[in-house]
Design a protein around this nucleic acid. Structure first.
Length: 213
DNA sequence: AGCACGATTAACT
DNA sequence: GTTAATCGTGCTC
C-alpha cells in the first residue's frame, strides 16, 4: 500500500506539467525497509545540479536490513562508514564500491536501526542530455540501468553522503510519482559470498518490463 | 602498516 | 563468458 501523501498542489488546475510534485516525507522512509524498497519503484528520483534538474523514475531497488543481515554493511556494527545508516531515515548513504563506483542508498527505519535501500536503476525523465554527458556518451539503453551508472549519470558522489532528502533546500530528493502495478522480486545482486539465508532473501525489486518479465 | 575484499562496469574474446 | 580497473574499509599483525 502506498502512503497517502500531501496533495495541496494536486488540484490547483493551472500548474504547468513541469511543476514539482510533493516529496516523499520522512515517514515514508521510517518504515520496514523491504516495504520501502518495494514502494520506491515508480517514484521520481530528483537531482538538482548547478541549478539544473535531473530526474528519473526508480526502476530497481534492494533492501539491506540491520546488523543481522550479513549482506548489509551494518553487519560490522557502527563504524565511520555505517554511521549514516544508524541515523534518522530519509538521508542519503553513499559509499564507494570497487574503488570506482558510488552507490546511492536511502536510509530507512527508525533512528538507531541501521538499514537502507540501494537505488539500482532509474528511467530518465528529465535532463537526459546532461546525463549522457556525465555518462561519457554511453548508449541510452545502458545510461542508468545499474547503481554505479545512476550515480554517474546524476553527478552523485561522496560529497552528498549523509544529506537529508526530506528538507526544503536539498540537491537530492524523491518525489511521489506513479504507483507500479507489476513488480518482480529476486535475490540481491553481487553478494555471492554472503551466507544463507541472507544470500537468498528476495529483497531485490524491479519494475517488470518486456526485457525481464 | 599491510592485506583481502567488494551492494560494479565496460571492454574485451 | 572473462577480466582489468581502482581504493576505502575493516580486520589482522
Amino acid at each position: 500500500m502506498f502512503l497517502s501523501l500531501p496533495c495541496r498542489f494536486r488540484n490547483s488546475g493551472y500548474l504547468p506539467y513541469t511543476a514539482a510534485m510533493p516529496r516523499l516525507p520522512r515517514r515514508f522512509f521510517a518504515r520496514n525497509t523491504v516495504t520501502v524498497a518495494r514502494e520506491l519503484l515508480g517514484q521520481r528520483l530528483v537531482r538538482i545540479l548547478n541549478g539544473q534538474r535531473l530526474a528519473g523514475l526508480i526502476t530497481e531497488t534492494e533492501a539491506y536490513v540491520g546488523e543481522e543481515d550479513l549482506a548489509c554493511h551494518a553487519r560490522a556494527g557502527r563504524t565511520p562508514r555505517t554511521q549514516v545508516m544508524y541515523g534518522p531515515p530519509g538521508h542519503a548513504y553513499i559509499y564507494l564500491n570497487y574503488g570506482l563506483h558510488w552507490m546511492l542508498n536511502v536510509v530507512t527505519e527508525r533512528n538507531g536501526f541501521p538499514a537502507a535501500v540501494l537505488i539500482r536503476g532509474i528511467q530518465p525523465t528529465q535532463g537526459l542530455e546532461q546525463m549522457r554527458l556525465w555518462r561519457g556518451g554511453q548508449p541510452d539503453k545502458t545510461l542508468t540501468n545499474g547503481p554505479g551508472k545512476v550515480t554517474q549519470a546524476l553527478g552523485i558522489d561522496h560529497s552528498l553522503n549523509g544529506i537529508d532528502l526530506c528538507v526544503r533546500r536539498t540537491e537530492l530528493f524523491i518525489e511521489a510519482a506513479s504507483p507500479v502495478a507489476h513488480i518482480l522480486n529476486s535475490p540481491r545482486v553481487g553478494i555471492e559470498n554472503v551466507p544463507e539465508p541472507w544470500k537468498s532473501m528476495a529483497w531485490n525489486f524491479k519494475i517488470m518490463t518486456n526485457d525481464n518479465g
